[in-house]
């Protein structure tokens, strides 16, 4: 099975979020980038498990600049066979998805996996967009994925529960918690990653459908009001009369 895993970078979850250039650019000063957790823990590791069980090839693809190669090497160290970097700034989800769809079209994959969402822009957009462009089924927020020949059995999250569905390959799947367990790269993997193929591909011309004009910070919380633990009547009274939520 030929599997393509879409990998994006995201700031380490403890990074300070600030903006520069009159709040139009994310301030990267001191920010550590990691592989977006959903892409790494769930999509990539499940792809490797499928390959280990049934053979095949796992390719990772990222749309990003040369500086993202550290993140790509980490994904290779976990076990992907090869990496492709599409050399462009992934400013808009549509732009990013069309780049990946274009690469996938030319190279033919049985399965395309994405993470549930990126934790910086939280759009949950790229997977569905790739699927539409390739005219493939899309199962979103899958928590389990099993392969039987050319048929996939998946568990996906639905409102208040889970559903088991079947779909044939080729298909696009977005991966959520439950798919697999995080793998820590070992020394051998890290050494091997240095020599695995990393191909740089030029982007195709695509218009951006959206743009971020600027950013704002949420209003600062007013100071917390402390309540005597003996006096829960007071808390109930405040929630009713002051906060008006009960």
């Amino acid at each position: 099975m030929k599997i393509l895993v879409c990998i994006s970078k995201s700031p380490d979850t403890t990074s300070k979020v600030a903006f520069t250039d009159e709040n139009t650019k994310f301030d990267e000063n001191g920010v550590q980038y990691i592989v977006n957790p959903y892409d790494e823990w769930y999509a990539l590791v499940r792809a490797l498990e499928i390959k280990e069980a049934g053979g095949g090839q796992v390719t990772i693809v990222t749309v990003g600049a040369a500086t993202d190669e550290a993140v790509i090497r980490k994904a290779l160290a976990i076990g992907a066979d090869e990496a492709v970097r599409i050399d462009a700034d992934p400013k808009d989800a549509y732009y990013t998805a069309m780049q990946i769809a274009n690469y996938a079209k030319a190279n033919g994959f049985d399965l395309i996996l994405t993470g549930k969402e990126t934790i910086n822009y939280n759009g949950s957009q790229v997977g569905g967009m790739i699927a539409e462009e390739l005219d493939l089924p899309f199962v979103s927020l899958a928590e389990k994925l099993y392969v039987n020949g050319s048929s996939l059995t998946l568990e996906r999250e639905i409102v208040g529960g889970v559903q088991v569905v079947e779909v044939n390959t080729p298909a696009v799947i977005s991966c959520a918690k439950g798919m697999a367990e995080q793998r820590i790269p070992n020394m051998r993997g890290i050494m091997a990653a240095r020599t695995k193929p990393l191909t740089v591909v030029a982007p195709v011309a695509i218009e951006e459908l959206t743009s971020y004009v600027n950013y704002t910070m949420p209003n600062a919380k007013s100071a917390v009001k402390m309540i005597n633990p003996e006096n829960m009547d007071e808390l109930v009274e405040l929630l009713h009369n002051e906060a008006k939520v009960i």
């Binding site: 939280n122 459908l209 959206t210 743009s211 004009v213 949420p218």
Partner: peptide, 13 residues
């Protein structure tokens, strides 16, 4: 954006 740590203003082209 950034898991609710900031908000972005998005324009459609």
């Amino acid at each position: 954006v950034f898991s609710g740590k900031a908000m972005g203003n998005v324009k459609v082209n």
